[in-house]
């Protein structure tokens, strides 16, 4: 019951975020950047609640994410299709970018019961040594603020995690600034990422 309510809350938040993104595209007046192909920037970046990260042996302070753009993806390491496909695609998109415009890729596990911070970090780094993976004690809060639904679903003797396939863009001030929804195309994503304003929107 409580879970259903949480999911509903997350869904409403997701709808609000997507609605906002849709408005950003369709509202009268100049769009933030008509040149974007797959990324939708929010009309105004939104501050995020404070969140901590646990990345195991190689600590990752949230403050270390400031100063450049971050592409945040929620997933879990026992995810066979969506997470490997998305992380591999992000590795290719990032490699296609000039060094100066390469964002930090951050993978946050929605399955902290089975994924330790160390496991999430090891998993993300395998896709690209610059990627970071972590768990966060503020997972529900952060996912809610970004409109990223996730839910545990019983499957046979175990469970699987449903999660958002979207890529969330955090600006250099660590605010929620944009989103790209699946299916993702690495070339179009790379072109958009190269176009992100250096100091934030």
């Amino acid at each position: 019951m409580q879970r259903r309510r949480l999911l509903l809350t997350l869904f409403v938040a997701a709808s609000a975020a997507l609605g906002g993104a849709w408005l950003a595209r369709t509202s009268v007046g100049p769009a933030p950047d008509p040149g974007f192909e797959v990324v939708t920037l929010l009309p105004t970046p939104r501050a995020l609640p404070a969140f901590a990260l646990d990345a195991g042996a190689t600590p990752l302070a949230t403050s270390a994410l400031r100063g450049r753009w971050t592409v945040l993806f929620f997933g879990f390491t026992r995810c066979p299709d969506v997470c490997p496909t998305t992380l591999a695609l992000l590795a290719r998109a990032r490699a296609a970018l000039p060094e100066a415009t390469r964002p930090q890729v951050l993978f946050i596990s929605v399955d902290p019961e089975r994924d330790s911070g160390a496991r999430a970090d090891e998993y993300a780094r395998w896709y690209d040594p610059s990627f970071r993976g972590a768990t966060s004690p503020e997972l529900a809060l952060l996912a809610g603020a970004l409109g990223a639904p996730y839910q545990r679903r019983v499957e046979g003797d175990g469970y699987s995690m449903d999660h958002s396939g979207a890529l969330f863009l955090l600006d250099p001030e660590l605010r929620f600034a944009g989103v790209a929804t699946p299916p993702h195309d690495p070339a179009r994503l790379a072109r958009d990422l190269a176009r992100l304003p250096e100091g934030g929107p």
């Binding site: 869904f11 299709d81 449903d162 999660h163 958002s164 396939g165």
Partner: peptide, 15 residues
């Protein structure tokens, strides 16, 4: 055999 589908804005797998 699985299929990835979108349900309530989340990616889920259906067997």
């Amino acid at each position: 055999l699985h299929e990835t589908v979108v349900r309530d804005g989340a990616m889920t797998m259906e067997q």
